[in-house]
Nucleic acid binder design. Structure first.
Lengths: 338, 338
DNA sequence: CTGAAAGCGCTTACAG
DNA sequence: CTGAAAGCGCTTACAG
């Protein structure tokens, strides 16, 4: 394994100090009044030897790693994987890299992972917070660490975040069903205090109330897919007068569709359907299923914009950037008028 | 931002040298004959001050970063995202973290990303190689960098890899169709020299030949989904005598299913179907679609086992670990006897 | 049993 | 215009 060239090697070969080399490499030649001829000599040798500064040394010295920590429930979920891709794209174009980890909704594990990110001196944090991390994140923010949350925010933590307008999204979806003549509209969600899920329920309830209908809500205690299907089987059997249903997230909808197969429930014919989150399967259902689509790219882009802004700022305390993005209701056959 | 405690602080408070503290922290107390009482004192203070060694300093000193570079086409593809999750799980449990990036099948970009991984001194590399990176990877391996490839290997690069038995998988899937009475079996793949795709085609051709049938192959020049669908529309219109088709990868199958909708082709009734790669949509088709399932977890686990083994080894040159895992043929309604 | 010191490869305040 | 030197926070060969 041949030794890497270091700044010393460059300096030695040119018979100058490493200071000068460092200045040139960091583009401070003009600022430091280094002669053009010398600057060129350095640059030429750097190119010739293919010198790359040791990022570790730079990091130790400057305290910056150009690494961003990305913490989510599960990187393999399409929603998170999609955001990860776009975030990496933007980050890479600016010299940042992404270190990720999945919490699997385990509070202990999440705290541990956060500590690891800290130990590794990531420059910034992008997180979809699991429950129970409120205090940790508060502490983190107090150290002036750049943090941007997404997907869900936490009520009493003052920080930057990018979310979607959950309340409005389910309000409109519910209204869409009502306008198409549906009156007994169920809402299937999970039993959680996570803000995004609470907001989705609230939006549904608001629409139901605005039109003087009765809410019919099922909160699944999500453990796994088969348990979730069992709960839904019971629900749909008990609530057999339903004429429409809204599933509050993609994995809930997926289990809902499985439940339909099991019970022989026909989409639209027996029950109008709207899914929160749009995903490929919906397009293949018969008829295709109406869905509230989250703007993945826009979420990723907003997150990065805010984070990069914070990374640039030098201790200039700004107001929290709190962005709420609109969703798109993709109307398909499952929710049409009968 | 309060200052982090450093090894110096510990030493100073205890009136001992940082050497001793370092030994204790690194579990070398016994080996270095440090008294138990002193060891305990150090450990207690470390716990009390919640001291965490600065990973950057350790990395600079030891040359190890405990970071593994993960380079794939697109982290948002379920196949790669699934593998990423499991790899991260295993890595995290051993103190390693994953730095990822997507090449988007861009050779230039991939070379650049590889360089970035190098600059950041990742301890090991896990990659699904895009075309055109053969030389770069050879060079990398020559520096004794631990590299494990997966999904595809490269013919003339001697390295460790974990793949699946592509040839055998399509052979068996083809045979399965033949045994169920199908004779005009098409094979839709993409136009590429990537080894895994070549092997899949070879397996199909071998089975076709073994049963004295005629191969009917369509190679899509994959650009995007709609162009791909157009090519398939033409293909299925031209080859209207087909009684079965195998799609060589999940995204090809997805476009194939879209093509079916467009042309009104009914699965099984008009055309038996087998998909390479299993994914949720297949379960929701009518009838559900038979698929060759890749063992994501096993791939990830094998990759990590090999890589961790290499990371442990100190310059002990071992034979390349080249693992080929079996797939599972999930037989569903789409390929049953008529 | 324990410590002083070199060194990993950079950046930058200071000096001239 | 340029350089000597301190220092980021560790590890470890060497000395006693």
């Amino acid at each position: 394994m041949k030794k890497r060239v270091s700044i010393k090697d460059i300096a030695k070969q040119l018979n100058i100090s490493i200071t000068t080399v460092s200045f040139v490499i960091n583009g401070k030649a003009r600022e430091k009044n280094i002669s053009e001829s010398l600057t060129k000599k350095v640059l030429d040798l750097v190119a010739e030897l293919n010198y790359q500064p040791n990022a570790l040394a730079t990091s130790l010295r400057t305290g910056k790693t150009k690494i961003i920590g990305f913490l989510v429930d599960d990187i393999s979920e399409p929603f998170f994987a999609g955001i990860a891709r776009r975030i990496d794209e933007i980050a890479s174009s600016l010299g940042y890299k992404i270190l990720f980890s999945s919490t699997r909704n385990d509070t202990e594990k999440a705290i541990e992972l956060l500590q690891i990110f800290k130990d590794r001196h990531v420059d910034g944090y992008i997180m979809a917070l699991p429950e129970g991390l409120e205090d940790e994140v508060k502490k983190l923010i107090q150290t002036d660490a750049p943090v941007v949350l997404f997907d869900r925010y936490v009520q009493d933590v003052k920080t930057d975040y990018v979310i979607i307008d959950n309340k409005n999204s389910t309000y409109q979806a519910t209204e869409h069903l009502i306008e198409n003549g549906y009156k007994k509209i169920g809402f299937v969600t999970i039993d959680t205090v996570q803000q995004q899920m609470v907001d989705r329920l609230t939006g549904y309830e608001a629409a139901i109330e605005a039109y003087s209908l009765s809410p019919i809500v099922k909160k699944i205690s999500y453990v796994n897919s088969s348990a979730s299907i069992e709960e839904m089987v019971k629900f749909f059997k008990a609530e057999n007068q339903l004429d429409a249903v809204i599933f509050a997230a993609n994995y809930i909808c997926l289990d809902g569709l499985r439940t339909f197969r099991k019970l022989g429930i026909k989409i639209h014919k027996d029950l109008a359907v709207v899914s929160f989150d749009d995903f490929e399967i919906l397009e293949f259902c018969e008829p295709p299923v109406t869905a509230i689509a989250q703007p993945l790219e826009a979420i990723a882009e907003n997150v990065m914009k805010i984070l990069l802004n914070k990374l640039k700022k030098t201790a200039k305390p700004v107001e929290n950037a709190q962005v709420s993005l609109p969703t798109i209701l993709n109307i398909r056959g499952s929710s049409l008028k009968k």
